[in-house]
Nucleic acid binder design. Structure first.
Length: 809
DNA sequence: TACCAGACTTGCCGTTAGGTGG
DNA sequence: CCACCTAACGGCAAGTCTGGTA
C-alpha cells in the first residue's frame, strides 16, 4: 500500500495505450447446461488447413521483428562521414538553439535551480530526496518486511535425516540456504573456487566423399576447413537467414577468406553460382536418421553425453557444490545477427584454449586444456563471477562462462535487484514530482532529462545506449530519433521504432501535455530525420543523475519497478472464489499485462490457428454432449423444462448443420476405431497362431455397431430427443456438472492461449516480476506453484520459495 | 568528457523432453 | 503404448551500466 498511486503524472496514459486491448474477461462462464449419454468420442477437428502465415502486412500493433530487407534508414548523422567523433550527433548536435520559446517562456539563463533541480556538478547528495538509510548489502533477507519468516533462521546447513555414517558432503551443500545468512558482501564474490573448465566443441566431421559443393555446375574439392564453412551455410539454405543478402555476402566473404588461408586454388567468384543442395540434403538426411533412431540408441547417446559433461556441470564455490551455466564453448558457425545486423552471416570461428582465460581459486587445480594446447591465462580474481572468458571474433564481444541461474551468486544479485526496485517505492513519488518539474525547466538538458524520465517511467522504455555502425540500428529512450516519434495534437504521441532485438515498439498514447510540448520542441527545426530527440542526454548522464536521487538507481530499475508494481496491483484485483483454472488464467493475465507493458513479444507459432480451431471443435463436441444430456434429462422428466429452462435452450454455435456434420464425424471415427481394434486383435491372434486369423466377416459384423450408433444419432437428429438409457436423473446431473467443469476449463485454456499468441510471458517472469509476488500468491490462493513457475524458474527463485501468503511487495 | 572494455542482465528462438490424447 | 505436440530448456545475441583511461 505504499503510495505511488498518488503521483501527479498521468500514469493512466499507459492504460489507455492502444496496445493494451485487454480482451474481455469472461471469467464467469456463461450458461452451463447438460449433456451426455454414453460418452461420445471427442471429435477432433480435422486439421483445418489455414493460411497460417497471416502476418503478411498486418502492420499495426505488435508486428514482430522488422523484416531484414528493409533498407536501413540510419541517418547519415550517425555515421562518421562528417568527421564527427565516431558516436553520432550527441552534444554537437544541431543546436536546438537553447530554448526557443514560442510556446513557453524559456530563459536561457540558468536560473538557480531550486532545491531538487541540482545539476550535474553537484552530485553531492544534497538537495535530492535522500531518503531512508541506504539499503545495505548486508541486509539481504528476502522475506524481511513480511511477517516473521517461517523458516529456521540462520541454519547454514540443514542436514536432513542422515544416518551417521553417510556423510557424503554433497548432500549437505545442496541444502545451503544463502538467503538465510545475513551478510553478503558486494565486491568479493567468492573465497575458494574450483571447477573443471570448459567443454570444447567437437571436432569437425568431414562430409562423405560424394557430398560436395557445386560451383557453376561442377563439384569442388574443398579443403576441410573450407568445407566446414560451406557446410554451415549448406545446412541453412532453407532458412530465412540464408536468403538474406547481407547474410550471403558476409558468409561468402568469410568463406573465400578461409579458402585463401588454406591456399586453396579455385575459380569460385560468385555466390550465385554456388550450389549447396547436396550438402543440404545430406544434413537433412542426417537429421532424419537421428530422429528415427530407436529409443534405446537415443538413450545410449544421451547417457554418454551426460557422462562426458558431468564434471563440467558443477563447480565448488566456497566449499559448496554449485551448478555451472554455459560450460560449453560456443561452436563455430555463421553468426546469426538479429534484425538488420550488418555482420550477420559472418563466420564465427572455432575457439581454442589459447584464447581462453580461466578464472579459478588459487589453491584449485587448473583444468586441463585440450591436449597440446594451453590457456591464454589463468587468473584468480574473486571479485568477478565468471569461470572462463574469451573474445568472440565477429563483434569482438567478450563471452563468459557463468554459474547457472539457480546458483547462489546469481540468486544473490537477483534478490538485490528486486530489493532495489522495492526501495524505489519510497522514492518514486519524489522522483516523479521532480521530473514533472523538470519538464518545465529552463535548461534544455534538464527538460530533456525530465521528459526522458517520464517516458522511461510511464512507458517502461529501455535506457537506449548509443550503438555503433556495425550493429543493427535499434534504439531505446535516449537514442530515439526524430522519425521514431510522431506527434498528434493535442497530446497524442505515436512511438514507432525498433527496440532491443529489433522488436518493433509501436504505441499510440496520450501523454502529459507538457511532455507533448517538449517533444515538439525537441523535434523542432532544424532537426530532421536522423537526429536525436534527446541530443543533450546520454544514458550515462541520465544514470548519473538517477544515482544522485537514489543510491544504485539507474534507468533499468524503473522497468523492474514498474513491472513488479503492475503485477502487484493486478494480483490485488483477484476476485473471490475462482476455480483453479480461472485463478491460473487470472495470474497469467496479470503476467500478460506486465509483458505488454514491457513489450515482450514472440512470433505466432506456425499452427496457432489450427490449435484454436481444434479447441473450438473440442469445446463444441463437449457442448454437444451437454445438449444430449439435457435432452436425456428432459425425456426422463419433462417437467424439468419449467424449472430448468436451459434444458431446452440449445447451445451457442451448435446448429443443425453442425450436428449433422458432427454425427457424420462420430460415425467415421467409430468405424475407424473398430477397424483399428480389429487389426490389433488380428495381429495379436496371428502372433500366437499364424493361422488364427479372424474370419473375414468379423470386421463387418463389428462394424454394425457403428451403424447402430449412426441409426441412433439419426433418430436423435430427427426427433431432437435422446434416450436416457438406464441413467437416473441423479446420475445425469452429476455427469452434467462434470461436463460443465470440463467445458469451462477448456474454454479458459483456449482464451489464455489465444491471448498469448503474440505476447511472451516468460521474459517478465524471469527478469522483472518479483518472484515473491508469485510465491505468496500461490500460497494465498492455494494455486500449486507448478502451475505458475516451471521447474527451472522455481529453482532460480529458490530464495523466494518460502515467501508467506501475506508478504507485501 | 569521450570512449571503451568488462561484467552482468535481458530476450527471443530453435531444439528437446516428456505429457497427453487417440 | 505410441505419435504427436507443446512447454520448457538451453543457446547465444543484444542489451545495460560501471569504471578506468586518455
Amino acid at each position: 500500500m505504499s503510495s505511488s498511486d498518488s503521483d501527479s503524472i498521468s500514469i493512466s496514459a499507459r492504460r489507455r495505450s492502444g496496445r493494451n486491448t485487454g480482451r474481455q474477461i469472461n471469467l464467469k462462464e456463461s450458461d452451463d447446461e447438460n449433456e451426455s449419454f454414453d460418452e461420445l468420442p471427442l471429435s477432433e477437428a480435422k486439421s483445418v488447413k489455414t493460411e497460417s502465415d497471416d502476418d503478411e502486412d498486418d502492420v499495426p500493433i505488435g508486428s514482430k521483428r522488422a523484416p531484414v530487407e528493409k533498407k536501413n534508414k540510419r541517418p547519415t548523422k550517425r555515421t562518421k562521414n562528417n568527421n564527427e567523433t565516431k558516436k553520432g550527433t550527441r552534444k554537437k548536435a544541431e543546436p536546438v538553439k537553447e530554448e526557443d520559446e514560442d510556446d513557453l517562456p524559456l530563459n536561457t539563463k540558468a536560473k538557480p535551480r531550486t532545491a531538487r533541480g541540482k545539476s550535474k556538478e553537484s552530485k553531492k547528495v544534497n538537495g535530492t530526496p535522500v531518503k531512508k538509510e541506504e539499503m545495505d548489502d548486508r541486509d539481504l533477507t528476502p522475506l524481511k518486511s513480511g511477517p516473521p519468516s517461517p523458516s529456521p533462521k540462520s541454519s547454514t546447513i540443514t542436514s536432513r535425516n542422515r544416518s551417521p555414517n553417510d556423510d557424503d558432503e554433497e548432500e549437505e551443500e545442496e541444502d545451503f540456504k544463502w538467503w538465510e545468512q545475513g551478510n553478503i558482501d558486494g565486491t568479493q564474490k567468492w573465497s575458494t573456487l574450483e571447477h573443471s573448465g570448459v567443454l570444447f566443441a567437437p571436432q569437425y566431421e568431414p562430409l562423405p566423399k560424394d557430398v560436395k559443393l557445386y560451383y557453376d555446375g561442377k563439384p569442388v574439392d574443398l579443403p576441410l576447413e573450407a568445407e566446414e564453412v560451406a557446410g554451415f551455410f549448406g545446412a541453412m539454405v532453407e532458412t530465412d537467414h540464408a536468403k538474406n543478402p547481407t547474410f550471403q555476402k558476409n558468409f561468402f566473404r568469410d568463406f573465400l577468406a578461409v579458402c585463401k588461408e588454406c591456399n586453396f586454388k579455385h575459380n569460385i567468384k560468385e555466390f550465385s553460382k554456388c550450389d549447396f543442395s547436396q550438402m543440404f540434403h545430406y544434413f537433412e538426411r542426417k537429421r532424419d536418421e537421428k530422429r528415427n533412431m530407436s529409443k534405446e540408441q537415443k538413450k545410449e547417446i544421451k547417457k554418454k553425453k551426460d557422462e562426458e559433461e558431468e564434471s563440467y556441470k558443477w563447480c565448488t564455490l566456497d566449499g559448496r557444490k554449485e551448478r555451472v551455466g554455459n560450460f560449453r564453448i560456443e561452436p563455430p558457425g555463421l553468426f546469426r545477427g538479429r534484425g538488420n545486423h550488418p555482420k550477420t552471416g559472418s563466420l564465427k570461428r572455432r575457439v581454442f584454449p589459447e584464447q581462453i582465460t580461466i578464472n579459478i581459486g588459487k589453491e584449485a587445480p587448473v583444468p586441463k586444456p585440450l591436449p597440446g594446447h594451453h590457456w591464454a591465462e589463468v587468473r584468480h580474481d574473486n571479485t568477478v563471477t565468471w569461470l572462463a572468458t574469451w573474445h568472440e571474433n565477429v563483434n569482438n564481444n567478450v563471452k563468459y562462462v557463468f554459474l547457472a541461474a539457480g546458483s547462489s551468486l546469481k540468486g544473490q544479485s537477483d534478490l538485490k535487484k528486486y530489493e532495489k526496485s522495492r526501495k524505489l517505492k519510497d522514492y518514486i513519488d519524489d522522483i516523479r514530482e521532480g521530473y514533472t518539474k523538470d519538464l518545465k525547466s529552463d535548461l534544455t538538458v534538464e527538460r530533456q532529462r525530465g521528459t526522458a524520465m517520464y517516458l522511461i517511467d510511464v512507458f517502461a522504455l529501455r535506457a537506449g545506449n548509443e550503438k555503433g555502425e556495425d550493429e543493427a540500428d535499434t534504439v531505446g529512450c535516449c537514442s530515439l530519433r526524430y522519425e521514431h516519434v510522431s506527434l498528434k495534437p493535442p497530446n497524442i504521441v505515436i512511438f514507432d521504432f525498433l527496440g532491443k532485438d529489433s522488436i518493433r515498439y509501436y504505441n499510440e498514447v496520450e501523454v502529459d501535455p507538457q511532455v507533448f510540448k517538449n517533444l515538439r520542441i525537441f523535434k523542432r527545426s532544424p532537426k530532421k530525420e536522423g537526429d536525436l530527440i534527446f541530443d543533450r542526454l546520454t544514458t550515462n548522464t541520465l544514470n548519473k543523475y538517477l544515482t544522485s536521487l537514489m543510491d544504485g538507481l539507474s534507468a533499468k530499475v524503473f522497468r523492474t519497478y514498474n513491472a513488479s508494481h503492475t503485477m502487484n496491483e493486478e494480483l490485488k484485483k483477484m476476485p473471490k472464489s475462482l476455480s483453479l483454472a480461472d485463478k491460473v488464467l487470472f495470474y497469467n493475465r496479470a503476467n500478460r499485462t506486465v509483458a505488454i507493458l514491457c513489450n515482450h513479444q514472440r512470433s505466432v507459432t506456425k499452427n496457432h490457428d489450427v490449435q484454436m480451431e481444434r479447441y473450438e471443435e473440442r469445446i463444441k463436441a463437449l457442448q454437444y454432449q451437454r445438449l444430449r444430456l439435457h435432452r436425456m434429462m428432459l425425456s426422463l422428466e419433462p417437467k424439468l423444462s419449467k424449472k430448468m429452462p436451459e434444458l431446452v435452450q440449445g447451445e451457442a454455435g451448435i446448429d443443425d448443420e453442425w450436428v449433422k456434420r458432427h454425427h457424420e464425424l462420430l460415425y467415421e471415427l467409430e468405424k475407424e476405431k473398430i477397424k483399428k481394434k480389429f487389426e490389433r486383435d488380428n495381429e495379436k491372434i496371428m502372433a500366437e497362431d499364424p493361422k488364427g486369423k479372424l474370419p473375414d466377416n468379423e470386421l463387418e459384423k463389428r462394424l454394425t455397431a457403428a451403424d447402430q450408433l449412426k441409426a441412433v444419432l439419426d433418430a436423435e437428429y430427427r426427433t431432437t430427443k435422446v434416450h436416457p438409457g438406464r441413467a437416473t436423473l441423479e446420475r445425469l446431473e452429476s455427469r452434467l456438472s462434470k461436463l460443465n467443469d470440463r467445458i469451462k476449463v477448456m474454454r479458459t485454456q483456449m482464451i489464455d492461449k489465444d491471448e498469448n499468441k503474440t505476447t511472451a510471458l516468460t521474459t517478465s517472469k524471469i527478469n522483472y516480476i518479483d518472484p515473491r509476488l508469485t510465491f505468496s500468491f500461490s500460497r494465498r490462493e492455494e494455486v500449486p506453484i507448478e502451475k505458475l513457475f516451471s521447474k527451472t524458474i522455481r529453482d532460480k527463485f529458490n530464495w523466494a520459495s518460502e515467501t508467506p501468503a501475506d508478504w507485501e511487495w
